[in-house]
Design a protein around this nucleic acid. Structure first.
Lengths: 347, 347
DNA sequence: CGTTAGCACTCATCGGCGTCGAGTGCTAAC
DNA sequence: GTTAGCACTCGACGCCGATGAGTGCTAACG
């Protein structure tokens, strides 16, 4: 579709613009050395590229900047993934070489390191509970009308919730119920927990426990909402402010409001988008993002999974003028390392 | 120190500036009606007030704005606390009328409501563990080399941490240790937990448990760091961007970096400052704040406590040009309501 | 003697205007 | 096909002068 020369020039323009943030003119491309043509020739090609929709001009007498389509073509066909710097490799390795820690911590730490290495904002979606199972359930009374309920999953995730104890229930009855739950429901996937509740232990409850109905609804309260509950970790949010495209407060504001809104964020980061050559890395450029607030941002995401089961996502958010080569490269590395870690962790 | 008329004029200027964010001139004060003097007279008084350090002039031919000293005097002597609006009262009441929930949730919810009502940024320092005691300790193996440790306090707070199990330790031994800890250390204040560890159970461990040393250091790992660990909840961070004084990106940046840095934030919010007439409300204006990033902000904090024991703090951060009357009023209400809630909660 | 009207003065803001220069598109020559 | 040359466009920048809000001072007023 594009001639070799056009690809060469487009690459040069995108690279230039990524590092300078200013419209790039024919003269500066010509001077770079890697494109051996005069400004005039380059100008002709640039006019063609603009007609084809890969470039645009902020105003008549300015240089060109890549359009979304231009970035997309660049990411899909032109970007060259050079090697990571030693520092980057070191930082990544050391992260996964640490002592055994909770899965969530690793994800969080990874995201924060990515934000530091790239100077963009990282958004990490913590592991979901799709295939996690109940490891342990506990109900600890704090006083006569309150108790704290604790759920531990096989992945080591701990959820807790304070609940009211229905009046007239003794401690021994609570214990009985908790024991019943642990023996009958241990190993059951969290998402099936509520449906299994009646099936497995409804009868026994009615037989052995007074106030059975109250107890069941108590347990239901504890379980409710937890399936959908996902942690979102943000890091490097102030990095955004370093980018010249966000020197305007209004633009920051809409983005920031999105970042504060966890559910919207989950939707944004989870949406499907352009996939980068089957590596699980997705690149969403500008309006390819579902949310208007980041329609002039690019979001690059990597998912982490175990046994083919997608657990969560790590994303990097920056301007469309993003260092795609560096970021995609980093993401690939991280994705691989995370996969190894998860395999080991889940055994 | 100031004449009645000076106080009247200072009040008018501060009020005006708070609502308009622009230097206020003699003419506009005169026109307000509540100060029955001509612009000329007011000009004379303004010159005096400036000489005394209560006002300053951005440039020669502009109006006056309050200096830090001016704000301080206003807050200490002039501010009039009018009644809260019905909506505000309603929001506050409904917050504490909710069902029994975890203390942390109430604090968090309170802070977020304050941010919404005031359009400033709220910073809440979660309850510390000063007088909380150990309610329950648990160690759940996830696989042969990892376990998740859970600590529950008498206030219903749950901490958890994933730890490595020293090789060669059986499940039954773990159980033995956990039981020992629960029977011997339940009710012990968290801050004394580590020191009591050796005293109370060192002997028994050595007697009944193999690998005693490893087990003790395992438990120590679990306990380490938790005493100092405080949750910080932010809310309404984007509200900052609505203030005209923060339309400049650089200023936002330094503030935001502070907000991202939990330990620094704890220090800032916990520092002592000007106290408002013995109500526990503290007002820190401009450079009274310990951190340079917020030297042109005001921070108003209220502490919540139980039995005279200070548990945590809720703060509101805004420009020095803050609606002191409204905010102080709200804070007083919240502080009282929180105290009642905590009393009830702690019983 | 406190208060106020009058007036000259200061200074930030804003729109208009000319200059500058980066970059383009077109044409003609190589 | 490539490139030098050139006229043209247009945003950025700096320099006015006008405008107007606000001041400080002085003199008059009750």
């Amino acid at each position: 579709m594009l001639t070799e020369r056009q690809r060469l020039i487009l690459t040069a323009i995108v690279d230039d613009y990524i590092s300078s943030a200013e419209p790039v003119g024919s003269r500066s491309i010509s001077k770079r050395g890697d494109v051996g043509y005069s400004p005039a020739t380059i100008r002709n090609e640039m006019a063609d590229l603009e007609e084809l929709g890969f470039l645009e001009q902020p105003h008549t007498s300015a240089g060109r900047i890549p359009s979304h389509k231009g970035y997309r073509y660049y990411v899909d066909h032109l970007v060259r993934l050079d090697d990571l710097s030693k520092e980057e490799v070191h930082r990544l390795k050391s992260m996964f070489a640490e002592k055994i820690t909770a899965m969530e911590q690793v994800v969080q730490h990874t995201a924060s390191t990515l934000a530091q290495l790239t100077n963009y904002t990282s958004i990490a979606l913590g592991p979901g509970m799709f295939d996690t199972t109940l490891r342990h359930f506990q109900l600890l009374p704090l006083n006569e009308d309150t108790a704290v309920a604790i759920i531990v999953t096989n992945t080591g995730h701990v959820e807790n919730k304070t609940v009211a104890i229905p009046p007239g229930i003794s401690t021994s009855e609570l214990d009985k119920v908790v024991n019943l739950l642990n023996t009958k429901l241990a190993g059951v996937p969290l998402i099936k927990l509520r449906s299994q509740l009646y099936k497995e232990i409804g009868d026994e409850m009615n037989k052995y426990v007074s106030h059975a109905q109250e107890m069941i609804s108590l347990v239901e309260t504890v379980l409710s909402g937890d399936e959908a509950h996902r942690e979102v970790y943000l890091s490097g949010t102030t990095n955004m402010l370093n980018q010249p495209e966000f020197k305007d407060v209004d633009r920051i504001k809409t983005i920031w409001e999105l970042l504060e809104e966890t559910p919207a964020l989950i939707k944004v980061i989870g949406a499907p988008g352009g996939e980068e050559q089957g590596t699980g890395i997705q690149v969403r450029i500008g309006q390819e993002n579902t949310h208007a607030a980041i329609s002039n941002c690019s979001l690059i995401t990597a998912t982490y999974s175990v046994h083919g089961q997608n657990l969560g996502t790590i994303g990097l958010l920056g301007p469309t003028r993003m260092e795609y080569a560096k970021v995609i490269n980093l993401m690939q590395q991280v994705s691989q390392q995370l996969a190894v870690f998860m395999e080991r962790y889940h055994k």
